[in-house]
Computed example of a mutant assay.
Amino acid sequence: MPSIATGGRGATVNEVSTRFNLKAREEDGDWLDDRGAIDGDLPPLRTTVAHETPRTIITKNNSPDIGFDRSINAYRGCEHGCIYCFARPTHAFHDLSPGLDFETKLFAKPDAPALLRAELGKRGYEPKPIAMGTNTDPYQPIEGRYHLTRQLLEILAEHGHGCTITTKSNRVVRDLDILAPMAARGLVAVAMSIPTIDPATARTLEPRAPHPARRLAAVKALSDAGVPTFVSLAPVIPAITDHEMEHIIEAAAAHGARSAFFLPVRLPHEVAPLFRAWLEAHHPDRAGKVMSIITSIRDGRENDPNFFTRMRGTGPWADLMRGRFQIACKRHGLNRERFRIRTDLFVPPQGPQLNLF
């Protein structure tokens, strides 16, 4: 797979997936050039945004190894360009590359707020926490232009509906005027993703995400405002970021985080060849070692798709990571409490028909 490494981007290749037997299509002119504010200078490869019009916005799942059964993703694709992102294969659904296309050809869902209000108002709707940021980052740069995440939060706050947010962007603090009152009612928690605090590593691993120091500052701002804030060490990459685990946990605690969690790196579908190409481009001296450890964690494979073990890994390396993580969290006072999002404050939208009483 030939490398077309581009400054400021994560993937080094842009091969279109053939997993769904879709024909390659030419650009049709419907892409909108996103010239909004971004972190750093815009590289030669432009970011474009197309509008997607789904019929629903809440996605349900029945996975037994994750702590939520519904989620919202207002965007598809992510300009942060994290090479390890397990959402990259979703771009193949659109006959686009999980490589550079995933980072540069984005989709926004402008109808998301209206769809959410409609779904919350459906007869028999049962409120449970909605996870935001499970697929692509709700505070990636184009949020500064579309404000979809903010609009969704406004609706959830209005109707007393709880949610969780996972992001690696300090842009989340711009919505503290919504998040702080929600937190006071027990309706929100934020997980800040910080897999590395080394700027040089972050520059290639997640090239267009905010600087790790900015994310730690956001953890402090959220915590100071009373928002329950967690730090996600996801993923931990052996021989690349695993040596930072204790330092990240110490920094998270110093900035007010309540808890932390970690996941060993996962390489599903097209992510595996993209990750291997990234290793060859940026860490050729240890590429073989990294992949050898990953396969040892994944029962001899590059990826383990099985429930529970996919999130934990198996074998001595995975056990060592867990032990180090638990010791560091105990030392710095993290994970001492469990936080639950309230569901008893939900008031559904009335809709056009007013109640008689």
Rank of each mutant, 00 (worst) to 15 (best):
T196Q: 00
R35Q: 15
K122T: 03
H283A: 06
A112E: 03
A234G: 05
T343G: 05
L320F: 11
G256R: 00
I237V: 14
M1Q: 11
A252Y: 00
G121Q: 05
Q140I: 07
N21K: 14
R342Q: 04
N21T: 07
F68M: 10
N355I: 12
F357N: 01
T295E: 05
R324G: 02
P127F: 01
R266L: 02
N135Y: 14
R336W: 01
M132R: 02
P284C: 10
A277Y: 05
R171N: 07
K122Y: 08
S17R: 08
A257W: 03
A131E: 13
E244T: 07
K220Q: 10
E270M: 14
I327W: 06
I155Q: 03
P284M: 06
A257G: 08
N21F: 07
E302Q: 06
G133K: 06
H51L: 14
V290L: 04
E206R: 02
S193C: 09
A5V: 05
D224L: 09
K128R: 08
T241E: 09
P238M: 08
D39N: 14
I155F: 02
P207C: 12
L267M: 12
A257M: 07
V190M: 01
G99Q: 13
T204Q: 11
G313R: 01
T12H: 04
I130S: 10
G351A: 06
W317N: 11
F307K: 08
P235C: 01
G351T: 00
S3K: 14
Q140D: 02
L176C: 00
W31R: 11
E244W: 03
D111Q: 15
G288T: 09
A257V: 08
I142M: 08
D137Y: 07
E337C: 08
G288I: 05
M291C: 06
N62K: 15
E302A: 05
T47E: 04
D242R: 03
D319V: 12
R214N: 15
E119C: 04
A225M: 05
F262G: 07
K105H: 11
R312G: 10
A239Q: 12
L42C: 13
G81L: 07
